[in-house]
Simulated assay, not measured.
Amino acid sequence: MFEDIKVIKERDPAAKNYLEILFLYPGLHAVIFYRISHLLYRIKIPALGCFIMFLVRMLTGIEIHPAAKIGKRFFIDHGMGIVIGETTIIGDDVTLYQGVTLGGTGKENGKRHPTIGNNVIVGAGAKILGSFEIGDNVNIGANAVILCDVPSNATVVGIPGRIVRMNGEKVKASILNLDHVDLPDPVMKRMKDFEKEVHILIKEFKECRGNCRIEKREDI
């Protein structure tokens, strides 16, 4: 539990002290009760574990199935609307922002939720749906929808998610990049290029129309 508290102090600039984190961070409360519930699930008392997490969902807006497997130094920032499914596996040093769903498609049996590697950032509103593997050191942009495997050291944005950056160098946890918003967006870039092309066409059209008027006057 101490590691979960310490990592919040390291990653959240709004965290003033450990006492504030312990009493006022619903993401931490959800993680603490998840770890208790997961233990109950492992010792064959699943109903009690599910009931605890049901109460946690009512109090925090965070839904974590007690059967999910979550590694060390797990940080939920804000947390409202987060859903973590039953067969989800999460590695160490993972950060989730509000509105993230680690869910299934509702069609599979067995392993039907994603596997998240180490040192992964999942931006606000992102959805990872299905039994896919997300590699280590991956950044997933806000509102991205992931429907396939993602290799390590990748940056993914968009709907559906597209890899827009690959970084061959391993990102250490101590220098973890928490920027999940300021990521390259190929769709926005294409829209801006299209806007420039439209402005050029409008300019050429106006010039052409002006030349046509001059030619008509000369004919008169």
Rank of each mutant, 00 (worst) to 15 (best):
residue 102 L to Y: 06
residue 166 M to V: 12
residue 99 G to H: 03
residue 174 S to L: 09
residue 212 C to Y: 07
residue 51 F to L: 14
residue 185 D to R: 07
residue 124 A to G: 13
residue 65 H to M: 11
residue 192 K to F: 11
residue 39 L to I: 12
residue 112 R to N: 05
residue 57 R to D: 10
residue 168 G to H: 13
residue 133 E to G: 01
residue 187 V to A: 06
residue 127 K to Y: 09
residue 119 N to S: 02
residue 10 E to R: 11
residue 56 V to P: 03
residue 131 S to Y: 02
residue 148 C to G: 04
residue 154 A to S: 15
residue 43 I to E: 10
residue 85 G to F: 10
residue 146 I to W: 02
residue 114 P to I: 00
residue 60 T to F: 03
residue 172 K to A: 10
residue 5 I to S: 10
residue 109 N to S: 13
residue 49 G to E: 09
residue 42 R to E: 11
residue 180 H to W: 14
residue 13 P to E: 02
residue 86 E to P: 14
residue 136 D to G: 06
residue 97 Y to D: 04
residue 205 F to V: 00
residue 182 D to W: 09
residue 193 D to G: 02
residue 116 I to D: 08
residue 41 Y to S: 10
residue 32 I to L: 12
residue 162 R to A: 01
residue 131 S to G: 09
residue 180 H to Y: 15
residue 108 E to Q: 14
residue 120 V to P: 00
residue 127 K to L: 14
residue 125 G to F: 09
residue 180 H to G: 14
residue 200 I to V: 06
residue 107 K to R: 14
residue 7 V to E: 08
residue 206 K to Q: 11
residue 7 V to C: 14
residue 173 A to M: 07
residue 212 C to P: 00
residue 40 L to R: 08
residue 53 M to S: 06
residue 141 G to K: 08
residue 197 E to W: 00
residue 32 I to K: 10
residue 78 H to L: 12
residue 74 F to S: 11
residue 127 K to M: 13
residue 205 F to M: 05
residue 161 G to Y: 04
residue 49 G to S: 03
residue 199 H to Q: 12
residue 60 T to P: 05
residue 106 G to D: 07
residue 29 H to G: 09
residue 154 A to P: 10
residue 140 I to N: 06
residue 148 C to T: 03
residue 83 V to F: 13
residue 89 I to V: 14
residue 38 H to T: 08
residue 179 D to K: 15
residue 136 D to K: 06
residue 74 F to P: 12
residue 64 I to A: 07
residue 170 K to P: 00
residue 211 N to M: 11
residue 183 L to Y: 01
residue 84 I to S: 04
residue 68 A to V: 12
residue 21 I to S: 04
residue 179 D to W: 13
residue 141 G to I: 13
residue 107 K to E: 11
residue 92 D to L: 03
residue 92 D to R: 05
residue 121 I to D: 01
residue 151 P to E: 08
residue 124 A to N: 03
residue 20 E to L: 08
residue 116 I to G: 07
residue 24 L to A: 15
residue 113 H to S: 10
residue 219 D to S: 11
residue 70 I to T: 02
residue 13 P to L: 05
residue 106 G to Y: 10
residue 164 V to R: 03
residue 111 K to I: 14
residue 54 F to A: 13
residue 114 P to R: 02
residue 128 I to L: 15
residue 80 M to H: 12
residue 56 V to F: 03
residue 139 N to Y: 01
residue 182 D to A: 15
residue 205 F to T: 01
residue 71 G to F: 01
residue 124 A to Q: 04
residue 99 G to M: 06
residue 126 A to P: 10
residue 119 N to L: 05
residue 17 N to Q: 12
residue 175 I to N: 15
residue 189 K to G: 03
residue 99 G to K: 02
residue 177 N to D: 15
residue 67 A to G: 15
residue 152 S to C: 04
residue 74 F to D: 13
residue 128 I to V: 13
residue 140 I to F: 04
residue 4 D to A: 15
residue 30 A to N: 07
residue 169 E to C: 12
residue 154 A to D: 13
